[in-house]
Structure formats: C-alpha cells, structure tokens
Amino acid sequence: MTSNEFMFSVFPYVTIIIALVVTPIRYFVKRFSYSSLSSQFLENKQLFWGSVPWHYGIILILGGHLLGLIIPQSVLAWNGVPWRLYVLEGTGLSLAFLTIFGLIMLMVRRAVQPRIRAVTSVMDVVILLALFVQVFAGIWTAIFYRWGSSWYAAAAAPYLWSIFSFNPNISLVENLPLMVKIHIIDAFFLVSLLPFSRLVHFLSLPLQYIWRSPQVVVWNQSVGAVTNSQIKG
C-alpha cells in the first residue's frame, strides 16, 4: 500500500470509526467530563479577543465547508460569475483571518497566563496545535492555489462523498500539493481527537434553550403517582 493509499483511504476510516465509537462511550460512561472547560473565570480579557473571533470564524467556515459538501453544484454555479467568486473567496478569507487571529490569541493566552497554564492539559496543547496547522494550511491553500471554493466543490466534495460511500477515490486527491494534503489529513486527525479532547463541547450546543420554559422542576417521584390514600391504605 502506498502512503497515499493509507493516508487517504484507510486513515479517514480509522479516525471516523474512533470518533463514532468513542464519543458515545464517553457520553454514556464519563458524562461528567463533557464540558467547555471554560477558563474565563481565571482570565477574562484576553479570552474575549481569542474566543469570540475564533468561534464565530470557525463555526461559519465549518458551515461553509458543510454547505459545499451538501450542495457542490450550487457552489459551482454561484462561482460561474467572476464577481460572485470574488465575494465568496473574499468572505472566506476574511473569516479565515478572523479565525487564525483568535486562535493565535488563544495560544498566546495559554502560554503567558500563569493561571491558564494551571488548567492546561496536554490535550489542550495538542488540539490548539492541530487546529493551528489546520487553519494555517487552509489559508495557505486559499492564497497560493487559487482554485479555492470551486476546487473544494469539484474535487474535495466528491472525494469526501467517495469516503462516505465506502468507495474511496484517491485519484481526486493524490496529486494535490503538500499543504492541501496536510489540510485534509489534519482534518481527519482532528476528527479522531474529538472524543479525547474538549472538542466534544461543540456537540452540546444548547439549542433547546430557545424553546424551553424558564423554570425547570424535577420530581423524584412523578406528581400524584403515589397518592395519599395509597400511602395511608
């Protein structure tokens, strides 16, 4: 097996299986460990400049990736007109800069604040580095290989679909430049880190807050299940 074959047709499955199997196990066995592990309580100001740009940037960019994966044809059609391509590329790149700015702030904060160092685990360092490599490779690709979004829709999306349909087509990716390959491989690496790091926090996005009632009451025994007559009798 060539290294390309391994990295693009075996490794992705390994990471996805790890994520799919271990994440629920962690959820059911060690649910207490699911947390954003916020460190804002220990340091507030630098976190703002790190966390806010990082999260808004990464969530929108991931959303973009997802969209391109689901409706690649529409993306290609949109990009058919040059100014629309520039709008998309420009937005993507600005978001990417926002993301990397936030990420660098987060890394600096972890390095220089003694209180934050006290709550930094090895895994925190690993994911920050892996995310940095990921965002950096993404920006590099966007700047130096100008096929950008059309390329993603035309080549990466079909490749990902070929993975999901258990028929990996590595010819779509094996001849790409190194930075692009790094972007793909690191993405799968991050997938495998999901269950072993604080990244699980994004699975708990609490959307139910929008519709739940303000007060929550929990009964040890359901109301009226045991009536007084039963108790007395």
Partner: peptide, 26 residues
C-alpha cells in the same frame, strides 16, 4: 442555564446543578 442543568426539586424546592448536564456555559 442554556443546558437546563439547574433545576428545582419538586418535592422540597431545593435548587441543584446536575453535574452531568452542566457544560460550563457559566
């Protein structure tokens, strides 16, 4: 609480944080 981790006990009104549901949104 966005997660709905904090609740009032129906029987005696004690307010508790379910440690397994809290996600640290603070």
């Amino acid at each position: 609480c966005p997660s709905g981790a904090i609740y009032k006990r129906g029987e005696d009104g004690i307010v508790l944080v379910n440690q397994n549901v809290c996600r640290g949104w603070r």
